[in-house]
Simulated assay, not measured.
Amino acid sequence: MCDSNISVFPLHRRRKLVEGIARVLESKNGEDANAFWRSTATTILVQLSESGIAPRLAEQEVRTLLHAVIDDIATRNAAKFAQ
Rank of each mutant, 00 (worst) to 15 (best):
V46W: 06
A58G: 14
L48F: 09
H12L: 08
H12R: 12
I70V: 11
R63K: 14
Q60P: 02
I44C: 08
I73K: 07
G20A: 07
A78Q: 11
T40W: 00
Q60R: 10
N29T: 01
Q60N: 07
N5K: 15
E50P: 04
K28F: 02
E26F: 03
A79G: 05
N34V: 02
A54Y: 11
R14V: 06
T64F: 06
S49P: 01
D3H: 15
E59S: 14
L25Q: 11
S49C: 06
L48W: 09
R14N: 12
I73E: 08
L57F: 10
K80E: 07
I73G: 11
T43D: 14
A82L: 09
F81H: 13
I70W: 00
N34P: 04
K80H: 05
T40R: 05
Q47D: 15
E31K: 00
A74K: 07
R23I: 06
V62C: 06
A41V: 02
F9I: 11
R15S: 08
R56V: 14
V46Q: 10
S7T: 15
E19M: 06
S39I: 00
R13L: 13
R38L: 03
L25D: 06
F36N: 00
D72F: 10
L25K: 12
E31I: 00
M1S: 14
A35V: 01
S27T: 03
T64G: 06
S39H: 06
R14A: 09
L48I: 11
N34E: 12
T42G: 14
E59Y: 12
F9C: 04
F36V: 00
Q47M: 14
K80P: 00
D32H: 01
H67A: 07
S7D: 12
A22I: 00
T40G: 02
V24G: 02
E19L: 08
T75Y: 13
F36D: 00
A79V: 09
I44L: 13
E61A: 03
F9H: 04
A35I: 01
V62F: 06
E26R: 08
P10S: 06
R76I: 02
I73D: 09
I53P: 10
R63W: 10
V8C: 07
D71W: 03
K16A: 05
Q83L: 10
L66R: 12
F36R: 00
R63D: 13
G30H: 01
A22W: 00
K80M: 07
G20T: 07
R13P: 03
P55K: 15
T64C: 11
T43I: 13
N34H: 07
Q83Y: 07
D3T: 15
V69L: 07
I6L: 14
E61K: 02
E59N: 15
Q83I: 13
G30N: 04
H67F: 05
L45R: 14
L66T: 05
R13H: 12
K16M: 02
H12A: 11
N5V: 10
S4V: 03
A58N: 10
V46E: 09
K16N: 06
D71H: 07
S7G: 09
I53T: 08
R38G: 02
L45T: 11
T75M: 15
H12F: 09
R38T: 03
